[in-house]
Amino acid sequence: MDLIAAGAGAESARGLNSAEVASPCIAVCQMDAAGVFCTGCWRTLDEIAAWSRLDAPAKRAVWQAIAERALA
């Protein structure tokens, strides 16, 4: 969870005007027991599949969702 928080913080610090948003992938690709989230990056399968097509604001929204999931 600390890696997720650090990544979310880094993306926030990068600023809303930055066109580049780092991927949350940490190469630990395994779904949780319920099959909802990747246990490495806390994204859903839909978020993972769509990542390369998302614009910067949408990627930041995924990062925000990840941060909220990590806190739950």
Results as ranks from 00 to 15, higher is better:
Gly35Pro: 04
Asp32Ile: 02
Ala33Gln: 13
Pro57Tyr: 02
Ile4Val: 13
Phe37Ser: 04
Ala50Thr: 09
Ala58Val: 05
Cys29Trp: 07
Ser12Met: 12
Ala61Gly: 09
Ala13Gly: 01
Trp63Pro: 09
Val28Asn: 15
Pro57Thr: 01
Ala65Arg: 14
Arg53His: 10
Ala56Gly: 04
Ile48Asp: 01
Arg53Asp: 13
Gln30Met: 14
Met1Cys: 10
Ala34Thr: 00
Pro57Phe: 00
Ile66Val: 15
Ala56Arg: 08
Val28Thr: 11
Cys38Asp: 15
Asn17Met: 10
Ala33Asn: 11
Ser12Lys: 15
Ser18Lys: 01
Ile48Ala: 06
Leu45Ile: 08
Pro24Cys: 08
Gly7Met: 08
Ala72Val: 12
Glu47Phe: 02
Pro24Lys: 07
Ala34Ile: 00
Leu71Cys: 11
Ala65Leu: 11
Glu20Cys: 03
Lys59Trp: 03
Ala72Tyr: 00
Ala50Asn: 11
Ala10Ser: 05
Ile4Thr: 14
Leu45Thr: 11
Ser52Trp: 07
Pro24Gly: 09
Ser12Trp: 03
Arg14Val: 00
Cys38Val: 01
Cys25Gly: 03
Gly15His: 06
Val21Glu: 05
Leu45Glu: 15
Ala72Phe: 10
Ala13Lys: 12
Trp42Ile: 07
Ile26Pro: 05
Met1Gln: 14
Arg14Trp: 02
Ile66Gly: 08
Asp2Gly: 05
Gly15Thr: 12
Leu16Arg: 12
Phe37Lys: 00
Trp63Cys: 11
Cys41Thr: 05
Ala19Met: 11
Ile66Leu: 05
Ala13Pro: 01
Asp32Cys: 02
Gly9Gln: 12
Ile48Arg: 11
Asp32Glu: 09
